[in-house]
Design a protein around this nucleic acid. Sequence first.
DNA 1: CATGAATGAGGGTTCATTCAT
DNA 2: AATGAATGAACCCTCATTCAT
Lengths: 187, 187, 187, 187
Amino acid sequence: MDATYHVLCEEGYAGLTMRAIAAEAGTSKSLIHYHFDTKEELLLTFLERFLDRLDEWLVEIESETDDPEARLLAFVDRFVVQPADADRQAFWRAVLELRLQAAHQEGFREQLKANNDAIRSALASIIADGIEDGTFREVDPETTADLVLDALEGARTRQATLGPEEAPLTAREAVREHVLDDLVREE
Amino acid sequence: MDATYHVLCEEGYAGLTMRAIAAEAGTSKSLIHYHFDTKEELLLTFLERFLDRLDEWLVEIESETDDPEARLLAFVDRFVVQPADADRQAFWRAVLELRLQAAHQEGFREQLKANNDAIRSALASIIADGIEDGTFREVDPETTADLVLDALEGARTRQATLGPEEAPLTAREAVREHVLDDLVREE
Amino acid sequence: MDATYHVLCEEGYAGLTMRAIAAEAGTSKSLIHYHFDTKEELLLTFLERFLDRLDEWLVEIESETDDPEARLLAFVDRFVVQPADADRQAFWRAVLELRLQAAHQEGFREQLKANNDAIRSALASIIADGIEDGTFREVDPETTADLVLDALEGARTRQATLGPEEAPLTAREAVREHVLDDLVREE
Amino acid sequence: MDATYHVLCEEGYAGLTMRAIAAEAGTSKSLIHYHFDTKEELLLTFLERFLDRLDEWLVEIESETDDPEARLLAFVDRFVVQPADADRQAFWRAVLELRLQAAHQEGFREQLKANNDAIRSALASIIADGIEDGTFREVDPETTADLVLDALEGARTRQATLGPEEAPLTAREAVREHVLDDLVREE
DNA sequence: CATGAATGAGGGTTCATTCAT
DNA sequence: AATGAATGAACCCTCATTCAT
């Protein structure tokens, strides 16, 4: 799994061959096939593990603060890759490739969907909480959550395909200005 | 070129082999290599042609209306794929794959960057015009443009990887509510 | 024909493709096939023309001097490529490749054989003349001719495969010392 | 390796394809690529092994006799292919092609050069020994060695391109008469 | 649990040649 | 006389996968 991660970061999805993974792991291709019958299965397991970590990651937010505004910002920050963090950039890029390539395979879609739903409802409930306690004005929490997530995803894609390393950062600011400020304006 | 388009839509980037293109075009691989020395060259030409059409597409907007608000909405609509249009969905998906895979090749990056800049500044100038004539409140046009474009891109990605066909539509609504309404509120 | 010559020198036998010849000649492959049905035919014609020129070359020697010793040296010099003459080196190299590749094709062998016989008997008769007029001691003219020609050929091969540009020159000196001096010793 | 040898003899360098080697070896192309990453590497290894055997071959001479004259003749005999030995003829022919084609690749040149130097100095030291003990008259050992080797190489080339199967034999006689007899004349 | 050897399908590319104009 | 378009075979090489040990 670790080897898969590293190869994915360093070589991208195109370079994610069984040979490369085995070499990175310091074993043989055969051994990998002993544990995972097929490459698809390996990738499935890898994605599963990765998405699980993402979930755990989100839970931490709730223990950090109670303020809806702070929570929303903290949430956004999880998905913002710092310009200097080349490794994480490469990784997000690779995950995007992986998602794209794997999308028309049955097993993957379900996982991705489940994960996305989790993220989305986490954010939506933060917003709903904010509405309930009067911090935010009344909006549809899910629609707003989608907007925020889409914007962040789009920024990462822009970063991956065009290279402007600061894309996620400016996206963060834009979200703050146009979404967050908008939500708390009535205040 | 047409064959490339169709293969890309039907098989995705992974299935975009010379053999597949030739088969789709009803010719031989050799003939394709006669016209394009290398696969990269073919893809480059393909992307070029596609991006050119995108550019032309944007120009049309300016002739349709003078109202900044209407213009902005028209602009957004260009990048929203209707749920029913499966072909276009597949195509946008494929283009995204293409962009991702090709991003670390010199020639591609420049093209993609140039095209993205064109789109971005077109949208930014629509916003700037709106600010100037008092329709919109004072914001940074480029940051706002990035937000809108990122959100739309993210929605398409969500659609491509998860399958919610309505993603772009809801993104459109979210942009209308959180960005456009926000811009014209002072009115 | 000229184009064939140039391609052969610049690209070697491996690079002697119809495309390259056509490009060098500034025409199309099709036109070449119009004149020569097949590549083999073209090469056959080329070799023919080249060998003819070699023959003419040899005749000139007889008009230059009557002295057997001088004639023999003049003859040798025809087959010695100067270290500085990179073009001729490349050409001899290419001709050797051509001869080797073509050797198991019917037509070629006859031509090469005829040409080699001409060269050989020209040199042999120079030696025979020398024996007759008492300049040289009695040897078998043909065996001696073969030795000289083989040595020169071997030196060119050494030059072609190993790169010592002076190989033919030292071969020339060796022939002078061991063969020529030997022939005229009784003097 | 054996398969490479046989294909080289039977089909020549032009027919030395991965497919042919695999077929001859009774396996698949893939397997060959498993052992040798690239065709060049395979050929390099093949050449290496062949040249090594040549070297061992030379060493044997020294243990056969002490007489410089006999040694020199024994040495020459190593490079003389008997007219009847069609296999060896084909092989020498193929090696010559290989050397010619491969000459402009870095790795090959070094090997060829090293091997040639070894052969040359082996012969040169035989001659030098003969001079020292008074068997031979005083000549430059290296120049004479080059002459002998060039003559033998040229004879093999003649044999390969023209087919006179006795070429190396007559070359052997010519060397004996013009070089060896010349060396021992003072006796 | 672990490996090296082996495989077949398919990757992009190049070649001499042919065909229609 | 001359061309661009088209072809099929063959090129080297890579891949995920399997098999015997």
